[in-house]
Design a protein around this nucleic acid. Structure first.
Lengths: 333, 333
DNA sequence: GCCTCTGGTGACAGCGATATCATAAGCTTG
DNA sequence: CAAGCTTATGATATCGCTGTCACCAGAGGC
């Protein structure tokens, strides 16, 4: 607002051309004589002009903002996803507007609405579970909607990620093959973290299918964290000392489990197996690298961005891109 | 663009009022008869109207966007800061536009310029080191500029954080008091991470001042990470086995150091002291909580937001808010 | 010498909201 | 009951930019 409002008009006056010519020079659109271009650029420099993309986007209805809605930043996974998305966005000249839902569908809806008000070029959401209104909102917006992390369901437009159900099953198979029979599971608030729930589901189903006992389950109600994992394992073992291997809802919790074993003098793998999910650095850097599953987070972020760059029209039928997962054998199970 | 462009006009027509009345209802400004309000809200619901803040901000020149420029997301600290900022922003109805500089001043400048093009209500930058052009840009913008994390310098407007130099000195004092004499230091790219450099500076100066030998220094050139800390400590001890205590540039690295000790069978504190910086959860959850310094990150984020909420005019003379730090005695040094 | 084409530039009308001023009706008040 | 408020609503200009169409000069074709 204040005195510093240098607009196209000011630049145009100084360069003795019309506003539209300045606009063209700055956007590199249309034919411009070299001499004119130089005069304009010089005027831009002299005035210290900074584009106003509000006006630009309003006029051209083509924004370089991208909405990114994540459930949490305290779980170590999402900053990594964010880093991946951000890297890809920056390369392409887009900027993220970020929202954090805290695993709350209503909060997500609210965030999506506010972000849509900025007319982003695309929207990246986490997971496939959204309120009916959220879905309606993004569908109406007519932009690309990329749902990341999960492919176990029907996407609005494109879903990029992995099947958490399959990952849970793979975990069960892998650990059974390694000779473990009595399973435990330590998780946080499964109701809210739907993907963690899916993994547990897959784990249970495979165990039951192969005639094994389902896992003993210990859930903490707070957020996922190393401390919760540590406390969770302690409780689990207090109630069910017979567990041979404990699957954790994610690596953060699993690292806590490892810490508990270190502190309690439990020999990893021999006395107790520990298995995580995500393949985070903090877990791979442990003295004994964590046995876990790598979700290809960087790749997911990258593909998410590439997808909406390739085409700006949503897939009418929905599409799924499965980035898969790998078992990291590790040394803890 | 597409068919879905529901505007104020459409709502107004349906509710049989003027556009400005709809606008007033939605913003809760001015007196509106209850019956009118209901009609308008009903029309909004029926049309599925989503505000266009581009137009709104352009017309009113009062945005609810806030620029947030961070150096990195892979160092565990900044996601936490981001979480703090985000929590405070959400409460006040603002939305962050995020940029990551990778500790590159030129990248910062570019990001700042692009973000300013969205006419944010305020800009949160990290640290006090910026290119001349970056400073010029934000000063011209006439908005609040909050520089977080560091207070060891002259702020553009307000700086919120701690003196890293003082933290380095406090580290030296604390460890000397605990009886350590031969110091080591493991860091990453100090040239780029100015604050880590300041801490090292403070550490060195106090040691020298009290007649001690300066620390043996081991720097890795990559990014800060647990693995780098682990490797760094290994190299340091290979070259300088006489070290009694090793100060790490931050907790991530220090956790790596702890891992190395665990793996190499080095008894923490008795054989070797380990000291970090930040007070991250991952370090406090260790079997032996890390000895470190707590930088009040959540507080910094919160105060940053409160500051620009309180007043929208920059401090002409600059102001410094020192959020201080605490030594966490821990069990590793 | 007239016509068409291309390169280079500008005039003008929006984009979708809000600020500002105006207006109309109902209510006090002396 | 005229003057002066308050309450509720609208008309119009404007925010800063870009899309569209128009224009002009010079090059080339016939």
């Amino acid at each position: 607002m204040s005195s510093n409002a240098v607009t196209l008009r000011d630049v145009a006056r100084l360069a003795e051309v019309s506003e539209i010519t300045v606009s063209r020079v700055l956007r590199g659109s249309g034919p411009i004589r070299a001499a004119t271009r130089d005069r304009v650029l010089e005027a831009v420099r002299r005035t210290g002009y900074v584009q106003n993309r509000l006006a630009g986007t309003l006029a051209s209805s083509s924004s370089n903002l991208v909405g990114v809605v994540l459930p949490s930043l305290s779980n170590n996974v999402f900053p990594e996803v964010m880093a991946g998305i951000n890297a890809a966005l920056v390369r392409s000249g887009y900027q993220p507007v970020v929202g954090v839902t805290d695993y709350d569908a209503k909060a997500e809806e609210h965030l999506v609405r506010s972000i849509l008000a900025w007319k982003p070029a695309a929207m990246i959401l986490t997971g496939l579970q959204h309120s009916r209104e959220t879905v309606r909102l993004v569908e109406r917006a007519g932009i690309r909607v990329i749902e990341i992390m999960d492919v176990g369901g029907r996407p609005i437009d494109v879903a990029i990620g992995l099947s958490h159900y399959a990952a849970g099953m793979a975990t069960a198979k892998h650990l059974l093959a390694r000779g473990y029979r009595r399973f435990g599971f330590v998780g946080h608030d499964i109701k809210r973290d739907h993907r963690a729930g899916q993994r547990l589901q897959g784990l249970i189903e495979w165990l039951v299918e192969t005639g094994m006992a389902p896992p003993r389950i210990q859930l903490s109600n707070g957020a996922s964290s190393i401390l919760a994992g540590r406390a969770g394992l302690q409780s689990l073992l207090a109630n069910y000392p017979e567990c041979e291997v404990v699957v954790f809802a994610n690596d953060d919790l699993a690292v806590g489990g490892v810490y508990h074993c270190l502190a309690a003098g439990i020999t990893l793998r021999d006395q107790l197996g520990i298995f995580g999910f995500n393949g985070l650095d903090i877990a791979q850097a442990l003295p004994q690298p964590l046995s876990t599953i790598r979700s290809n987070r960087a790749l997911i972020g990258q593909i998410a961005v590439e997808t909406f760059l390739q085409s700006s029209t949503p897939e009418p039928e929905g599409r799924v891109i499965d980035t898969g997962f790998d078992i990291i054998a590790g040394e803890t199970a």
